[in-house]
Every structure is written in C-alpha cells, then in structure tokens.
C-alpha cells in the first residue's frame, strides 16, 4: 500500500508529510527530470506504509515540469490512497484537484488543512456535510499544530473510490430535502 500526499503548492503539504512520517525520509529525484520529491514511511496497523510527498500541483493538467511529475507519479501508483490536502480558506480551488483525482478512480481522503487560517478569515466549512456529499472521508486539520492528523490516519480505511456521478445525484437529493425544509 502506498499513500500519496497531493495538493496545491503552499497548503502545508510538507508539514503534513512530516507529521505522518517522522524522521527517516528520503529525498529522491524523479528519474529523467530535475524534480525532487520526498518519501518516507509510516506504520499503519503494524505495517510499514510508504508515504510520498508529491510536488504541489494545481490540477491534473500540468502547467510546468513539477506538475508533470506530480501527474506522472499519480498515474504510476494506480492502487494508491491519496490524501488530498486542501487549504480550507480556498476550498473551491482545492476541490477542483480533489474531484479530478476522484474521477481517475483513486481512493481519496480529504484533509481540510489550515483550518485556523480559514477561521481567521471567518470562513466556516461543514466538513460532515462535505463528507456526505462527496462520499469520501473529510477531516479538518491544522498540520502545523498537529491537530487532526491522527484522525486522518484512522479514517484512511474508509477511503474508497467514488463515482462522481453519485456525487451529483446525492447533491440533488439534498437540494430537494432542502426545499421542503427538512434540513
């Protein structure tokens, strides 16, 4: 089993990575390029699991070499679990990447990181509702303060591939319920 950490640049991905893996990390060069990435190991239910800090990318349509590598790394690890780290104060942008990864059929878990920043900006995200809509685990985290990291790990087992079509259907259902005032 392999875990990929993906997200935009500057969402605290590498801090997140540090929290997961501890000390023994390896910086590697993605062969044939000048792009470096880090990987390390964490133990999950007594097993060693490889964790890869994928270079930051805005979408799966690469714009530069680092993004090309990010996409290639994702494509290579077909059965990987993807922890998609999203900046809570920029949810929409982060969801774009998350949806793209889900569309490719990966088991995704979403970490709404930098919750404190969002709170500063007075943005509130209902992570439970988001989880219901998307059908994948959603956890609020503040990686820099080590908040929510262990929850992400414990929910890894709930991550499963989701068909985006289902998301649309479910959302429609909620809309309907919303109209009759049941929520």
């Amino acid at each position: 089993m392999k875990i990929l950490l993906m997200g935009h640049p500057n969402v605290g991905k590498s801090v997140f990575f540090n929290r997961l893996t501890g000390a023994n990390v390896i910086e590697s060069n993605y062969s044939g390029t000048t792009v470096d990435y880090t990987r390390g190991y964490m133990s999950l239910d007594g097993k060693e699991v490889e964790v890869v800090d994928v270079p930051g990318t805005f979408s799966l349509d690469p714009k530069d070499r680092a993004e090309e590598v990010a996409v290639a790394m994702l494509k290579e690890a077909k059965d990987a679990y993807v922890i998609c780290v999203i900046d809570s104060s920029k949810l929409e942008r982060g969801l774009y990447l998350a949806l793209q990864i889900m569309e490719e059929g990966y088991s995704v878990i979403i970490a709404l990181n930098m919750d404190d920043v969002a709170e500063d900006k007075n943005i509130k995200i209902d992570s439970q509702k988001l989880e219901q809509i998307l059908g994948v685990p959603v956890v609020s985290t503040i990686a820099i303060e080590n908040i929510g990291i262990s929850k992400v790990i414990s929910r890894l087992k709930d991550a499963k591939p989701v068909d985006v079509e289902d998301i649309t259907v479910m959302r429609a259902g909620m809309n309907h319920r919303g109209k009759c005032g049941c929520t």
Binding site: L95, N122, I123, K124, I125, D126, L130, I133, I167, T168
Partner: peptide, 25 residues
C-alpha cells in the same frame, strides 16, 4: 465518469454553497 472543467466548477459551486458559510470578513 469524468467531468469537463465547466461541469466540475458547476459541481464545486453547488457543493460549496452547501458547506461553506462566510462570516463577516
């Protein structure tokens, strides 16, 4: 199933309208 960018943004908009509340900045 895969979405095209417009569909994806539409979906995100409606999701966001359900889960995000913006307080006074």
């Amino acid at each position: 199933m895969k979405l095209n960018p417009d569909e994806r943004w539409d979906l995100i908009d409606s999701i966001a309208s359900h889960v995000v509340t913006y307080g006074e900045y």
